[in-house]
Design a protein around this nucleic acid. Structure first.
Length: 393
DNA sequence: GTACTGTTTTGTGGTTTTGAAGAGG
DNA sequence: CCCTCTTCAAAACCACAAAACAGTA
């Protein structure tokens, strides 16, 4: 990860996620070869995209496993928070530890959601936050190695693409609530306190964007709907290009579809009906495809609304990064992924859950007046259309 | 360390404005 | 699908005393 990708205000201490650490900690639990980018909670396994598809397309039961991006910090838990300031995705524990320790920093964090089913490459791009530019990354040459698409100077290579498009997520303002909770709560547990997701924002990806795109690119070659040579593939000037699967309007890309007389075909992926989004309470969202703006909901806490789910009887919601017993594993129904043991992580998770519950008990939903004298004064002040008016002296 | 002074920032509430979402034609 | 209308919630606005902060003796 280059320094240019880091937030300029980050101190050395806060640059934490040891992303250059031993890559073995991020190897796929299933193939043991590729870099793991996803985490399946039900299987307690880290998986690359290819193995994820292989494992979870086995049967309908496995396809219900909720998967998330792998935490950039610990490489061992499902990510539930995307910090655009650090350009990383974090699990609940790492998010809490990092953003609790760096109260002086104001980081722009957003909730991430898991997914189930067997989403297509395009859908995966959307899930990991490349929804607006993701398809560009799949415009491949015959070599398939470089993202040297037909955009020419406009889109000259993956690295430039990464530098200009994907990593330009600038930090934005964090909510006041985020700061208040951080400073006032006796527990300082603000992992759940993420500001609302603005619309049309570019998100996620994390610090493994390049590997992520590489895997998806390889994945795209094998995916039935995105295979070279089939209906999705068009040839232009001797090059092969993938016609976006879900991009909807060909004109959205400045790639010259219309100019070249190409109409992007919109067709359902073969597993589209099997692909489900989950809302923040872990319940499946019925829409097969949601607009970009709805992809990540903001888990605002609602009194009385519990956050645990029991999907498929063996899942725990993303909010806690919970690790559940795997019914499927216990019955040995699937090609069992290698499971990495982490007792400590489990303890940390329990600790985080208890912190969360404790904080939730003491949370105030009503308005709190800090200075009663100011309140008294404001009530007695003269107003014009509700606004304070100047006093005649 | 304490006291004082000057400057900057914060917080307060009623009304209006703004924007999102839903209903209906 | 598009447009209009309605409803609702949240943000914005205002002035200024109080709080917070910085500097000095």
């Amino acid at each position: 990860m280059s320094d240019s990708l880091r937030h300029p205000n980050l101190s050395c201490k806060d640059e934490a996620p040891q992303l250059d650490k031993d890559q073995n900690s991020r190897l796929c639990d299933y193939c043991g070869d590729s870099t793991a980018l996803l985490y399946c909670r039900a299987d307690s396994a880290k998986l690359c995209f290819s193995c994820d598809r292989e494992v979870h397309s086995t049967n309908q039961l496995f396809s219900k496993h909720t998967r998330s991006q792998l935490c950039d910090a610990c490489d061992a838990s499902p990510a539930t928070i995307h910090c655009s300031t650090e350009n990383s995705v974090f699990c609940q524990n790492c998010d809490w530890e990092r953003h609790n320790l760096s109260l002086s920093e104001v980081h722009d964090r957003r909730p991430l959601e898991g997914f189930t089913g067997c989403p297509s490459v395009t859908e995966l791009l959307t899930i990991v936050g490349f929804d607006d530019v993701g398809n560009k990354a799949l415009f491949l040459t015959d070599s398939g190695d470089a993202a040297d698409g037909f955009l020419g100077s406009e889109f000259d290579g993956l690295s430039e693409f990464l530098g200009s498009e994907l990593v330009s997520d600038t930090p934005s303002i964090v909510s006041l609530d985020d700061l208040i909770v951080s400073t006032n709560s006796p527990h300082n547990y603000n992992a759940m306190e993420v500001p609302p997701m603005p619309k049309n924002r570019r998100a996620a990806g994390g610090r493994h964007k390049e590997e992520l795109l590489n895997q998806l690119r390889q994945f795209a070659k094998t995916e039935p709907n995105l295979n070279y040579g089939d209906n999705n593939t068009e040839r232009l000037n001797g090059r092969q290009y993938l016609v976006p699967e879900q991009c909807g309007e060909p004109g959205n890309f400045s790639t010259g579809f219309k100019e070249h007389g190409i109409e992007a075909e919109i067709f359902p992926s073969y597993e589209a009906g099997d692909f489900q989004w989950h809302n923040d309470s872990g319940e499946p969202v019925t829409h097969a495809f949601l607009p970009n703006t709805s992809l990540r909901s903001c888990p605002q806490e609602v009194p009385g609304k519990h956050s645990f789910s029991d999907v498929c009887g063996n899942h725990v919601n993303d909010q806690y990064g919970g690790q559940s017993q795997n019914l499927c594993n216990s019955e040995n129904l699937s090609p069992a992924p290698r499971v990495a043991p982490y007792e400590l992580t489990s303890q940390e998770r329990d600790s985080a859950i208890s912190r969360y519950k404790e904080k939730r008990k003491t949370r105030r939903y009503d308005k709190h007046v800090r200075y009663e004298t100011r309140k008294v004064r404001a009530e007695s002040r003269t107003r014009i259309k509700g606004r304070f008016a100047k006093m005649d002296r």
